[in-house]
Design a protein around this nucleic acid. Structure first.
Lengths: 148, 148
DNA sequence: TATTGTTATACTCTATAACTATA
DNA sequence: TATAGTTATAGAGTATAACAATA
């Protein structure tokens, strides 16, 4: 609780990350996928089919919110809903081939954007960035034990 | 154009940044400021008062979109509108003391969040991250010549 | 009765189109 | 007529509350 003092380093890292985010925000719609659609499709791709509630929990959406998102994905042909054979109440959601293609396109578009910037960096800065990737990854994976 | 091949490094950097963004997204509402409100207020703070169109252009919003955003900021007491003395059609927007305080609170809240993660890093990773800040900053400032 | 999912409804954010007032 | 800004309206995205179907 009482940890109020902020070091210059903390502020510098915070500012840097904020700026990078603001920049990447402009490339959000590169492949016509909203942030939540991209995230949900990516998860379905890596984890296979999931039930609506499972997906909602992992994506940090409510059940109705996820129902709506899935509806949009279905309309766009990026995901499909199927009844769960083991539980008459449940619905399993699966990403389609078109969905996988879209996610891949989006990732590549962003990587292109980032790649273009990378080539502008000095070799020294490129090395520094590479060396910092584990540190950056730590921000996304709070505690090194739990993942999903 | 033909630059289609993506190196492993580009993909790794892209993935890392995506993950950090997803993580920071959860801290968006820390001080009750939307991303665009935070951005607009920050700009007003650093550049002084601006006209609606200037602010809209710089923030990448349409004029009506900016009018609406300013209206919300005004209702919250974070910004004020005043007629431009030199042009009867124009309106100048200025951030209030409360607005500056809110932006500061938001920044500090995020820095706290980031600071907490920083303390979990090894000294080695902390050094690596510090060394990579110039490289990260480059992503936000495309060409080292133009800024705003 | 508890769980799974949907529908109904509302709120935030932002866009396009149409309008008003000043230059 | 051109420019600055607003109002009117619509759509995306997501929430809470109320409901239906199955366990």
């Amino acid at each position: 609780m009482g940890n109020d003092a902020l070091s210059d380093e903390q502020l510098a890292v915070a500012r840097s990350l904020e700026r990078v985010i603001a920049w990447l925000r402009d490339s959000r719609e590169v492949a016509g996928l909203s942030a939540s659609a991209l995230s949900a499709l990516s998860r379905l791709q890596s984890m296979g089919s999931l039930r609506v509630t499972e997906l909602a929990d992992r994506e940090g959406l409510t059940q109705p919110g996820m129902t709506t998102l899935i509806h949009r994905l279905e309309e766009a042909g990026l995901a499909v809903r199927e009844p769960d054979p083991t539980d008459g109440r449940a619905v399993r959601v699966t990403v389609t081939a078109a969905g996988i293609a879209r996610v891949t396109a989006h990732r590549n578009a962003r990587a292109q954007l980032i790649g273009a910037r990378l080539t502008e960096l000095t070799a020294e800065d490129q090395n520094a960035l590479r060396a910092a990737l584990p540190a950056l990854d730590h921000f996304a994976h709070p505690t090194p034990s739990l993942q999903n």
